[in-house]
Design a protein around this nucleic acid. Sequence first.
DNA 1: TTAGTTGCAAAAGCTTTGCAGGAGA
DNA 2: TCTCCTGCAAAGCTTTTGCAACTAA
Lengths: 146, 146
Amino acid sequence: MQDNNNGDIDELLAKEGVKRTKHRKAILEILEQSETALTADEIFLLLKENNTSIWLSTIYRTLEMLTEREIVRKIMIMGEDKARYELRHNEHKHCFVCVTCHKMIPLADCPLEGFEKELHDKMDFDVTGHNLEIYGYCHDCKLRKQ
Amino acid sequence: MQDNNNGDIDELLAKEGVKRTKHRKAILEILEQSETALTADEIFLLLKENNTSIWLSTIYRTLEMLTEREIVRKIMIMGEDKARYELRHNEHKHCFVCVTCHKMIPLADCPLEGFEKELHDKMDFDVTGHNLEIYGYCHDCKLRKQ
DNA sequence: TTAGTTGCAAAAGCTTTGCAGGAGA
DNA sequence: TCTCCTGCAAAGCTTTTGCAACTAA
């Protein structure tokens, strides 16, 4: 854990005008360090590993607050029955989900910028975002399948 | 209801080797007639209006069966806590969802064909599908907002 | 006849809510 | 101090499951 992150997180919470509690910092740190979007339960287990005592309801309330403030993005993955949450970093990302092993692989580009502009011009929609998730067989599962 | 649809639905179920029950036909007809993806509950209410007596569990079981056979697509919409189902017609479609009035507007094109081919070539993924949903303010809500 | 479906009830699992006590500003 | 958060318990909702009765083939 770098002081850097802690500082950023403190600033972020202060800027939002909410209290800087240890739970909120812990949740944001977990999200900061994660490569992929996490479920509330996964965050719960990771915090437990860190010997942080917390309740799921607190995690849900925190994630809801962060989602409303657009600090976190809530997504749903094909075939899963629970929500995942990820930090809305500066960079905009999507992922590939393997239908067999459920691995989530981050993708480099977002192919939608031009398309959104087109929608704005042609349909007069004020686009604020999108959900995109590509699924199929990853390299490994593709080999195993054959 | 055209005989046409009934015939198609009968053929479809026969081809899949499942029993052609009145409930399955009714659910497929509802989906056929719907412009947008429906929740299990919405299907339930529509069937009730048609004086069809059915249980939600039957609807879920039918939708699951149809999803597995790739006749139906299961999607999740931003900010909703339940699944929606739509017929996988010949044409592949996406929709725009208004964050204010929750109207779902079908879009003409899918901007992802080239991107998926690229993923296949560069990352060696065997892409089988994707979820895409664009959200923002629709024309009407955009005016109201200003 | 018999295998596949459905009615019905109950449970499962994720998420939300209420309230009192506790911690940040 | 006072407002905002969290612990804890319980409920809410969608979805799944089990089993007996039923029905299409």
